[in-house]
Structure formats: C-alpha cells, structure tokens
Design a protein around this nucleic acid. Sequence first.
DNA 1: CAGTAATTGTTACCCTAGCGGACAATATCT
DNA 2: AGATATTGTCCGCTAGGGTAACAATTACTG
Lengths: 164, 164
Amino acid sequence: MPAPSNRPLNERTNFLLSQLGFHTAMRFTERLAALDIQPSHFGLLMHLAQGEGRSQQQLAEVLGIHRKVMVGLLDDLEQRGLAERRRHPADRRAHAIYLTDAARTLLPQARAIADAEEEDLLTGLDGDERRQLLTLLQRLADHSGNPRGVHPGLRRNPGLPGMG
Amino acid sequence: MPAPSNRPLNERTNFLLSQLGFHTAMRFTERLAALDIQPSHFGLLMHLAQGEGRSQQQLAEVLGIHRKVMVGLLDDLEQRGLAERRRHPADRRAHAIYLTDAARTLLPQARAIADAEEEDLLTGLDGDERRQLLTLLQRLADHSGNPRGVHPGLRRNPGLPGMG
DNA sequence: CAGTAATTGTTACCCTAGCGGACAATATCT
DNA sequence: AGATATTGTCCGCTAGGGTAACAATTACTG
C-alpha cells in the first residue's frame, strides 16, 4: 500500500533527505571555514588528489560544471596556495593543475572535519544501522543519475529555493 | 572500527545525504514549476493548511525565518491568489493569513508532485527497505536539532556553496 | 494616564554571486 | 594557408539575501 499523500513533511523521505542534506552541508560549510575553504574547494581538492596534471576543462567536466566556474575555484585555491597552474606539456592553451604541499597538508585536516561532521550526524545509530543507511543511500545515489562523488550543487542551473 | 578518513565521497553518509537532498530538491523545484510555485511556497502552504488565521510573525517563527522573508513569500502567494491577508481580529498591526479556495485545490496537486518525486527517488527499494530508510532518516532528523517539517534552507544564513 | 519602549509589517539600499556573451591565444581540420 | 574549434579569461547584468530605517499600533512604566 502506498503512503498517504497528506502525511506531514517529516514522513516524506524526499523531504527528510533535503532537510538533512542541507543541514549537514551547512554545518560542514561552517566547520570548513576554519581552514578558509568552502565545500566546493574541498570537492575540487579531493578530485585533484585522485589525479593531478589535468587541464581545467577536464576537471570541469569531471565535476560537471562550466569551465568558467573552474576559473574562479582555481583562483581561490591558487590564492590560498593550495593549487598551481603549470604549463600543460601537450597543449599550450591549457594549464596543468597540481596540488601544492600545503594542500597535501590541508587535505587530511579537511577530511577529518568531514569525519567529525559525519560522526555528529550519525550519533544515535549503531554500527549496523550506519551500514544499512550507507548502503541504502548509495543505492539511491547510484540510481539518481549523479556521477559518484559529484555534487549537483556545483552545477546549480536554476536557483534552488528553500523547501520550508 | 571507524570508517577510514581517506574513503571517497560516495562512501560518506553526509556527502550522500547532501548529494541526494540537493538532487531531489532540485527535481522537486523543477516539477513544482508546473504549478507556478516554489518549494518554499509549498512549505508555507503546508503549514498554513495546518492552521489558518495566524499572523505573519507567527508563521515566520514556525518556519524559522525572518519576518521580512515572510513578506515576500506572502506577496507571491497573494499575487497567485493562493493566500489572503485579512485584518487580525486582536491586533490591528498584524494580518491574519488564510488560504484561498484556489490553494485548497492546488495543495493536493502539489502533494501529488511530492509523491511522484519520492516515488522516483525510491525506485529500486522494496517496501521494507523504504520503511527502514524512512525510520533511520527520521531518527537523524529528530537528533539534528531542526524542528520537524522545517527546512533549514529557508533560513540560509550564510550562502551555501556546493559540495562538489 | 502620559510618555516611552517594543512589536508588526513594509520599503529602500547595498552588495555579493551566478549567467551570458564576448575575447585573445592556441590547436585542429581541410 | 585559412577556416573552425577549443582553452582560459574577463565584463556586464540580473537576482537574491542582509541591513537599516520607517509608519502604525500595542504594551509597559512611573
């Protein structure tokens, strides 16, 4: 039997996902400010750590954003001494993007912040329940059409108004 | 044993929540556009359906937003013929907010859109898994500090950058 | 009961962020 | 060689949120 249509918002899985997702993203943003970066920078650093030397265009494609947005993100990272634009060995139009040593020092700290945020979020769930939740969410995410580890908030086409 | 800190983003519950929450909110926004309203309007209508005649200030407090934002939301609803500002019987400064018949017609349609979005999201999960997920999310939400059914995106203090 | 403070709804202003178009430099195709 | 596409960048515009201030009304206070 399907769930009734007139149930309150906190009995709707989609609302709860949006509520909790916004909540944890907001808190993560606040905590990450201690490192003077934002979640989008963290995401880019994470992807850079998986393979350096790519062009801005390649990185933009992986993250699903326009190359112009990548300009701004890399400007930020470069200004903070976390990323370098080097000459691309094969294409003189492009830049090859590399992490700096500072970024390799900062990245574990940022991951620790993500861990702490996750721990606070999951307080109250035991190990089995956490594994259940993670598995269920992964199945939803795989089915959602979003590439793994790519946040749709970076390619915010239309403005996303709140869902109060 | 705790989860390792260097796992990818799609093995982090907080990231998955943010990713899925943003995704479903974005798709809900797109679908709701067929009714010429936004999720914030839907949320306000849902709360209004639970009790009319309250003042704008009271509504703002329930939704956790500033009264000025309520002005804009009610301007939108009034312009679309979905809400009415009447004279408050006890306080001549305040307005008493009521739904219109058009809103009572539109609200079930909006709920059906929310149902459809939820159904698309949960495709691939059977009944037991859906119940498990809902229960786990409700427990997280109750522990998160957000009032039930109140979306923190309405009181977006700092800008929420994407979490690529 | 006079006067002051607080509340309600609203408007005007600033200011940042995202979007589109256009641009120089370089590469690729014909 | 010439035309076309790609890469990275900049400029201008618009939209949205936050702050300050405002008139109307209510509540407090001596």
